[in-house]
Design a protein around this nucleic acid. Structure first.
Lengths: 206, 206, 206, 206
DNA sequence: AATGAATGAGTGTTCATTCAT
DNA sequence: CATGAATGAACACTCATTCAT
């Protein structure tokens, strides 16, 4: 309306951003509780106080908000991992820092992911989402690099990355079910398990 | 009609059994591809060439086939694990046999589980199904028993069982994506990883 | 099979008749409990121990058995009414005998008609069935005849027959809900009501 | 937009009300023609030109419209009866006014209730609906009160109320089938019938 | 005839998405 | 941009009826 609107952030822009974020947060909670299929767009917007129409102003579809959510998770986690990777000097400290970071990350998001889920639906976490694929790639690259630098024995990279992610994911989930949440203990368990395992696993090529 | 009629099961009975199995197989495939929620009863029966009505002659609901499927998987796998458990003398041989059995089991079921899946859906496997819960319990009991007998160090049982199942599940899936499927190599990898890990993991209580 | 089968009633013919009647009885019970729409063919045959197929050997459709039922009721009640009509000398004795006959009839069929019914379904009785239409016509003719003979004042015949049938039907139903069933009292009530009413109602034509 | 906007209900609100009423009217017609069970939600909305979805925007279920319909009928008729009851000084004038009110009521609703009906289905009127139960109770209470005040002989209250309602209902229906509809004649007939009947009916207790 | 598995149109209901206001 | 009523394809499931045995 006023020509100032374009020059400063403006209430309008701020609300838009806030709404977009509110929908994302609500979606995370709802998908977490109900799973993708069972969750309805109405479930999501009900938590935001917005209207169905508004939802479609910000996201083109239910699917799009799901993907945005996945990306959101990855976008927040990847830099952490990246930073750890850059300053890693040995495999153990890298692994330890990475696992701890992941556990802290999911613990901080826990409340939006905890509630009961229909028996057939599996926790959606970020599994198989584009965002998580990126994290997976990141982890694999880190492992490859670490092996390259001779900090770890050369093993089946694909299996190892797969196994490590599986361990972190599931033990992380088990951790969240215990009260109180003990990130340190879970990290210790995983890191030891992986390190011990890595040194025992058969090496490949030359 | 023929005097053999009394000796053989009867064509009718045979068709019924075949149809029941066909629906189960179709359901396994469809749930595998689409996930429980997204899969429709029509998707399932379309593969069998039967009618919607026939579906409900054999199973009372979509949910019931799903459970039958889960039970079917568990019913076939549990006895294997049980037998291994009964004759296990040391942790390594038990673990090795168990993992190998599991990998052979999923490899034999592979073709019905392979197709592409929408981004948000996770492979349903048997995860969270009543049948798989039973398998999980079985594995945990085996681990507990093995620790009790002093064959393995006393560690966090819940985390360990969780981690082992996670490893087997995900590495198993990765194994199925490689051609040719090498059960032996995957088993070797997992067993070493777990054994190495177990000996490195912190022990608990006394 | 044998040529004797045609000559004597034969087990075959007997069973056929018995089955036909069994289905009719079961249908009366089921329609009585559930109403026409809610009742399923399976509900009916379940009570007979026969198969769905057998049902369609005896009746062409669910609708046909319903009509047969109505006719069955009417077939049994009409002769009674007819006999009363033939020997009626005055309106009161005719009315009294007719109402009593009707109440005894429904009392004897009570057990198959009593159970709870979904709130929206109305008691099916024979209302509006072809058979009951015939009974209605019969009653109207009797009333017309009685008026013609000068045994009752000339009143609006259509309204009177309608009203009398309504009274008998609803008071009959109320009667069945009381324990013990007192046919005499209900008959007395209805006959007095109608007779008193008839003499007070405006006469028509000349 | 216009300064009148605040003064009038708003077009949106008006359409909503109109739609709600349209569905109710269509439902009355369809239930009237087909009966509750046979009527489908699609039958109802087809008459309104709305979509299936719209139906569920206004009513939560098929059952709910049915109840709304019953309540709607009762809500409109009960106050009339109540008013008559309050100012009734003798049984005859009360009865006469009540029957006339009922006949006028059904005559005014006639067009939505007239069409042909499958043989097995009975006109649903309001029979057995929660709303009509209330009307029934009201009538019974009125009769009880009138007897208490000594304005009518003490007779079997339950049978009398039952019979009167039956008469009004069925004669009312017969009335609607005649052209032209003559409320006065039908009222006269019923009132005389009932009054004459009541004075002839056996009295009870002391 | 008798059987009961097979059929598929039809039911009530949900929900992602659109669009007039 | 926000709103929420309207839309209609889609779903799980039922049931009268058919038909191979």
């Amino acid at each position: 309306m006023s020509e100032l609107a374009v020059l400063q952030p403006g209430k309008r822009e701020q609300t838009k951003l806030a709404n977009r974020q509110a929908i994302l947060d609500a979606a995370r909670a709802v998908f977490g509780e109900l799973g993708y299929e069972a969750a309805t767009v109405r479930d999501i917007i009900r938590r935001t106080g917005l209207s169905v129409g508004a939802f479609y102003n910000y996201y083109r579809s239910k699917e799009e908000v799901f993907e945005a959510l996945a990306d959101d998770g990855a976008r927040r986690f990847r830099p952490i991992l990246q930073a750890l990777h850059d300053k890693a000097t040995d495999f153990e400290s890298y692994l330890s820092a990475g696992v701890r970071a992941y556990f802290e990350f999911i613990a901080s998001e826990h409340e939006t992911f905890s509630r009961r889920r229909p028996a057939h639906e599996v926790a959606p976490h970020f599994r198989n989402t584009p965002g998580m694929q990126a994290v997976f790639e990141e982890v694999r690259r880190a492992f490859a690099d670490v092996m390259e630098r001779g900090l770890a024995p050369k093993v089946d990279l694909d299996y190892l990355a797969t196994a490590c992610i599986a361990i972190a994911r599931e033990v992380g989930e088990a951790m969240l079910e215990r009260k109180p949440t003990d990130v340190e203990a879970a990290t210790e368990f995983c890191v030891r398990l992986i390190l011990g395992g890595v040194s025992a696993v058969p090496t490949v090529d030359g």
